[in-house]
Nucleic acid binder design. Structure first.
Lengths: 210, 210
DNA sequence: GCGAAACTTTTACCGAGTCAAACTTTGTGT
DNA sequence: ACACAAAGTTTGACTCGGTAAAAGTTTCGC
């Protein structure tokens, strides 16, 4: 009764099959142009089963959210003593970039993902909802640590803004046709620029005299 | 052919009627429990007409967005010389609070609004989409001023986080049953705390030694 | 008043998502 | 092994948000 009973294995396989079929269709034709019924048929399964595994259609595409959320909260929670949340997340962004992780944004496969995402308001809405869930989760970690409800929410919100802005900046450049390698190289400075703003404040923007 | 032809007046009246009827029903029973067909009938109008005035059901409830957006961008755009965006928006938040404006969050009618909002994921999604539109609009103002695309987006994002976090903090307290007057009084400090974080950075969070 | 333009209604339709009941498959106790 | 329970899947019917097109109806310009 662990996780490799026949039952569990079949479920995982079905889930992955549906997700893959769906993603394939989305990338070919866009999110709204593919119906759930179509996905179900292509996966050899009933419509109801699709909704069994993925409560909303959007979850068929944005199914890596749970992992990302867990990873980010873990980065904050288990940061070294004396390391600020900003520093921890900054380092994590640099690490993602260095390892060529998709969530660094500076990745070749980007355009497909980005195009599908932008092809549907519903999908975008869900994407940003996940962003908020991340902010919320980080806030909880910080609040449980400091007891400061409000400041934790603020800090978490600011940090999340940095993470997502940095991501979408890289993604935007890639989609605009810039060379992935160039973007990736310059992205180091972008990350630092973003986290510097969060870390040191934006009081002197737009003045650059410091 | 200005705005007081019979035609224009009727349109405004109809629009307002629909909006009012809808809001009333939402507050009585929650967003999802009221169908568009029902609203149409209660307003003595056809379903199609409802969608004529409000492209999405959510817009029936969140129909003050355009004003808010315009106001916030105007605050940033027409701030005095030498005044930073942070300072301008901080002052604006204080002004909203002092004048008892609903968007300060510290207002008695809050619970109804908040309850309806939280009664529906779709509505929440739209709410946060509007938040993003605000960030995006502010970013555009800043970018047109400085030419710095990325920093503008970052700064706008951080500022928007402050605005919305401050709002939802006050709203949350009111809904939790705290006295509106108390919340309003303490909200001054909350605003400053939020904007201080944006202005001076969160580098030393959670350490308080400065 | 008359005709065109603007607004509304009607009707028909599509797709996401829910529900309940029938059916099939996997796991378990004996 | 075998039967029974539990978990998962399918079917079909239904609700609701939203769109499209065509046929009214009302207001406007002349």
């Amino acid at each position: 009764m662990a996780d490799h009973g026949l039952r569990e294995r079949k479920k995982r396989a079905t889930r992955e099959l549906i997700s893959n079929v769906a993603t394939g269709l989305f990338i070919q034709r866009g999110f709204e142009e593919v119906t759930v019924a179509e996905i179900a048929e292509a996966a050899g399964v009933s419509k109801m089963t699709v909704f069994n595994y993925f409560p909303r259609k959007e979850d068929l595409f944005l199914d890596r959210h749970a992992d990302r959320l867990a990873e980010l909260t873990e980065v904050v929670r288990s940061r070294g003593a004396g390391v600020s949340p900003v520093a921890a997340l900054r380092a994590h962004q640099h690490a993602l970039l260095a390892s060529g992780h998709p969530l660094s944004g500076a990745i070749t496969g980007g355009p497909g993902f980005w195009w599908v995402l932008n092809s549907s308001p519903a999908l975008m809405a869900r994407w940003y909802e996940q962003e908020r869930e991340i902010a919320s989760a980080i806030a909880e970690v910080l609040a449980s640590e400091t007891g400061e409800e409000f400041r934790s929410r603020m800090v978490a919100g600011l940090l999340t803004t940095a993470i997502t802005t940095v991501f979408s900046h890289a993604m935007g450049r890639i989609v605009a046709g810039e060379d992935a390698e160039v973007v990736r190289r310059e992205q180091v400075a972008v990350i630092d620029q973003a986290f510097d703003l969060v870390e040191r404040g934006v009081g002197d923007f737009p003045d650059r005299s410091r």
